[in-house]
Design a protein around this nucleic acid. Structure first.
Lengths: 199, 199
DNA sequence: GTCTATATTTCGATAGAC
DNA sequence: GTCTATCGAAATATAGAC
């Protein structure tokens, strides 16, 4: 029989609590600069104990990458990978903004440790997931797409990122719902000419 | 008498060439991940020789920080620190975009290693420079400024950053002049409602 | 100005007891 | 599942010869 949890952790498994701590540290200090000693100290046990739950430091980052990947897969599974036309951009960004504000830390982790994530994703050739980021990346680099559209798309992505980062640093007094509305408005102004076909 | 330079380095002093190499590495791999061994290898001499030119690794980053600071001071010395009103934003961003595209690496270095730069700037209390970034930062965090203006400003900054980062990654086929024009147009659409007083 | 050699620290990771 | 103890590698930095 499954024994009930004894720790005062809300029944949250130790592995998940380690990931919570690592997410916080990786997002605020960076993956390279965060040491396992630091994670272990916050968890209240020794460095070696971490290795019972994870095979390596990279393995912790990989698990966090999976959290983000599953999130993205669930949120954008109805998008046609082969045909991302501008008319779908507005709805795409509306959902993206909500998701990103809802899971700020995960996206900040991703943006901040992009190199490390790319490295371990490259060392784990399993799945070769075709996620949203890769599609946007290809769109941005495609010389066949009008330059104006590509630049506008990059600015829109940068705007969402900036809003998300600022949310925790400068916008602590702004309600999340209002922030989402304002960012949606700004992104709308950015991609309106693209959607309307003016560029 | 000042002896002529013998190295095939265009007469560029060793110290400056070290900074060039360090800038490239810090911007592409990050400050923490770049080792002095890596810099020394590219320079063609040993690790210890670096310490003849710089007192520490932090000192190298500090010198690069000064490059950026002098650049910013020269470019925005005519801005009134105490009165940054929206009507000046357009001109501010126009100059900012040109400067940033012109010195891409320096700004990428700054964005990527913001924490390390803040740390060494904090350890060097000299000057307590009041630069443009600090002013924008205060504006973004000021609850007295309308939320819509703050969010639009953050999006504009994020757009410029995105355009600059993408310039080297995805926009290699886009002429710099065209890119600057397109980013100016995008930022204009973002801050137009603010400048006109619609928000 | 650059070298070799080395001191010192910190890190990720492992071994084995409990 | 967690511990202590330790290994090996790599990092920053220093000492002293040339």
């Amino acid at each position: 029989m499954p024994r009930p949890p004894k720790e005062p952790s809300g029944g949250r498994p130790t592995r998940e609590r380690i990931l919570d701590v690592a997410l916080d540290l990786f997002a605020t200090e960076g993956f390279e600069k965060t040491s396992l000693r630091e994670i272990a100290e916050r968890m209240g046990f020794s460095k070696a104990a971490l290795y019972y739950h994870f095979a390596s430091k990279d393995d912790i980052l990989l698990a966090l990458h999976l959290r983000l990947h599953e999130l993205g897969a669930a949120a954008f599974e109805d998008i046609d990978p082969d045909r991302v036309d501008p008319s779908a951009w507005r709805g795409l960004f509306d959902r993206l903004i909500d998701r990103m504000l809802e899971h700020r830390q995960l996206f900040i982790l991703h943006a901040r440790n992009h190199d490390a994530l790319k490295r371990i994703a490259h060392e784990h050739p399993k799945g070769e997931h075709e996620d949203l980021e890769e599609r946007v990346r290809r769109l941005l680099a495609d010389p066949a797409v009008p330059a104006a559209q590509r630049v506008r798309l990059a600015c829109a992505v940068g705007s969402v990122m900036a809003g998300m980062i600022a949310a925790g640093d400068f916008f602590t007094d702004i309600d999340t719902g209002l922030l989402a509305k304002l960012v949606r408005g700004a992104v709308g102004d950015l991609i309106d000419p693209v959607v309307r076909g003016d560029v």
